Amino acid sequence: MTAIDRTRAAAAFKTYTDAYDAANPRIALKIEHTYHVAEACDAVAREQGWSPQDIDLAWLCGLLHDMGRFEQLRRWDTFKDAESMSHAALGVEVLFGETPAGAPAATSIRDFIDNPAEDELIRASIAYHSDFRLPAQLDERTRRFCDIVRDGDKIDIMRTIADSTVDTILKVDEDTFLASRFSTPALAAFDERRCVARDERDEAADYLVGLICFMFELVYPASRALAREQGDIYRLLDAPFGIVRPFTDPATRATWERLKKEMRAWLAGA
């Protein structure tokens, strides 16, 4: 097993991101998100009883999972993959390919870890972290690391959203959000206890359903425990985006009350 120098890896990450404008709140958000995901991967791996070497590797995969976000924002001024390119694929390019043209900083996987023995596993954990489903052909060990990165990412996305305004995340004001309704496909996903696919989100309210559905697909028991302990899922249920006013439409309001009740019951048994 390859030894990982966390101090060196963290310094390499900081060197890379220092070339981007941390005064930009979206850059600052992704830097903070990265550290939180790495620590979540560490915490879950420890609770699941992984070896010290695998705990370090889980932490590193978490640290590297969103490396493509910084170039995505620089090139396209968006975090939306549909309006740019897959940030996961871009992360693989940044770490395992040539430096993108015009990039303010260069880095490679060798800046983070000398031995290439785990390169394919690390590459997979980055490439597939935001996919709706993992490829079926992954070997068991690679799947474990992909799962832990995906869990850590979901856990911290809930924190990020709970700390943000609806305007920041969805580019709509509170009144518009509260006037939106739940689409049938998004509600079907909730009732099936699974994540909501991108093409199943039609209205602003669907985004909220998608967020709380993250809980259903956390793979590791330690991930579910960590999410409950951190409490961001409860903040999303009680005051999504910090909004305490109810949905405008009575039917939408009633549906949201049902979803909250069912999610709380599910969390109690998760």
Rank of each mutant, 00 (worst) to 15 (best):
A117L: 10
A43Y: 08
A105I: 04
P52T: 06
C41F: 13
D66Y: 05
D119C: 06
D56R: 13
D56S: 14
I55C: 12
A58R: 03
I122R: 02
I31N: 09
E47Y: 01
L121M: 12
G49L: 08
A43D: 13
C41Y: 10
A106S: 15
Q72V: 00
P100I: 10
Q48V: 02
E71I: 00
P100M: 09
A101I: 12
E120H: 11
Q72W: 00
V92M: 08
A43K: 13
M67C: 14
P100H: 12
M85T: 11
V37W: 09
R75C: 02
E83Q: 08
M67Y: 15
F70D: 00
L95V: 08
R74H: 09
Q72A: 04
D77S: 13
G68T: 07
A105R: 11
C61Y: 08
A58Q: 06
E118G: 01
D54L: 01
V37N: 03
G62K: 04
H33N: 05
D54V: 00
H65F: 12
N115Q: 15
D77C: 08
L64M: 14
A103Y: 09
L64G: 10
A43C: 14
I122G: 03
T107Y: 11
L121A: 02
H65S: 11
D66R: 03
Q48P: 03
L60T: 07
R69N: 15
D114F: 03
G68K: 05
R74L: 09
R69T: 14
C41L: 14
P52G: 10
E71Q: 07
G49S: 06
L121N: 01
M67R: 04
R69Y: 08
L73I: 06
G62H: 07
K30Q: 13
C41I: 10
H36G: 09
F112L: 04
Q48Y: 05
E93Y: 05
R75S: 02
A101W: 08
Y35N: 06
G91K: 03
